[in-house]
Design a protein around this nucleic acid. Structure first.
Lengths: 203, 203
DNA sequence: TGTACATCAGTGAACGCGCGTTCACTGATGTAC
DNA sequence: TGTACATCAGTGAACGCGCGTTCACTGATGTAC
């Protein structure tokens, strides 16, 4: 058996990581197989040794975020998924809605960069995307749950607020309005995180 | 001067309206000039009598929502932009985050269907998109402002919550999680609208 | 230990299709007389 | 009023390019003996 067993897997990972960055920056359709393979220091033809087609790469790239760049992201934010406490939700939203995250086109969460692409993609891609969504909601929910019986609703709404704020800011790159939206969503999300029980009791 | 002055304008409107619906449903890149012209009962070549290129059509289609389908949408929701009161914000978010709106692929707000496409489009398209965003924020802000000095922050956050909830729900069509997110965002947004002064005083 | 072999990851040319755009034309319609 | 004309909205064939995918091959590497 030529090439070590790990060799092919490492090449595959290089392709996926290159794709994740390029998709994040340019969107699924604006990235060509050539661009991905170039960035992975390979040539075009070899792509199909690793993936059935371009759509399969999309699914793999979205999936890869959770345990790859996303894990790094969480670590930087001080979030430890194996030790979730009442501070976790705040740390999460603080980092998610930060100017740093808004400026990080390569490393950003795919939910910000690619939601429209995913809405039109195959069920496999949507399933990969759903993993990210569930992870974020679950993390927030577990952090909030202690003091609040409406924890799940709030976790879902915080996620929508985080993603929505960043998605809208992204549509107007560099503008004042973009920064204003990010900041407003950040403030509101922080308020909800700190005082969620008070807010949820109304209505 | 052959053809009445209004004739060309009407044809142009037909093209824009066809494009708006198709872009909403399939995204900018998945719609071809042929598809648009077919839907407008015209043939391919005539397109360039009306638009410089496909990107210019995108900008026109996004812009058209505000006074076209969007005006219809607001009327259905009971919102009258010329008579904004303290109920307006609630009517707006109630309709925006409704199951009806989630199911309306053709008539939905472009901020839900096309944010990723706009983030990668030309400044002209982004400017058209910004009109929609400003209109929504402004409407909410004017409704909230009376009782709340943080009206603008809340209007911005409500917009992010509305758009984010719908965008995420759209990525998982027909799933339980999609409906759960829509419902949670709806509940939270309604709470914020009804009791914004109480919530905003915290922190 | 050294060598022949088999495997298959990677190469790069080619294929074929789709789509944005161009262009020479056609024919419907308003205007001049 | 009727007719010739000029305009230009609309037609449809063609162009050219890009990109996803295929395919015959090459050569690096692990294994058998």
């Amino acid at each position: 058996m030529p090439y070590s067993a790990a060799h092919k897997e490492q090449t595959r990972l290089r392709i996926v990581e290159a794709a994740r960055i390029l998709f994040n920056r340019h969107g699924f359709q604006n990235v060509t197989i050539d661009m991905v393979m170039d960035k992975a220091d390979l040539t075009r033809g070899g792509f199909y040794n690793h993936f059935k087609n371009k759509e399969a790469l999309f699914s793999a790239a979205v999936s890869s975020f959770l345990m790859g760049r996303g894990a790094q992201w969480r670590a930087d934010a001080g979030v430890d998924p194996s030790n979730i406490n009442s501070e976790t939700a705040f740390q999460m939203i603080d980092a998610y809605l930060s100017t740093k995250h808004l400026g990080d086109l390569d490393g950003q969460c795919p939910m910000i960069a690619l939601p429209s692409d995913v809405a039109r993609a195959s069920p496999d891609v949507q399933a990969s995307f759903q993993q990210l969504l569930i992870a974020m909601v679950s993390l927030l929910e577990r952090s909030i749950a202690a003091g609040d019986q409406n924890g799940r609703q709030e976790a879902l709404s915080l996620t929508a607020l985080c993603v929505g704020g960043m998605v809208l800011a992204r549509t107007l790159p560099g503008s004042e309005l973009a920064e204003e939206i990010r900041a407003a969503a950040h403030t509101t999300a922080a308020q909800m995180t700190r005082h969620q029980s008070g807010a949820s009791r109304s209505v």
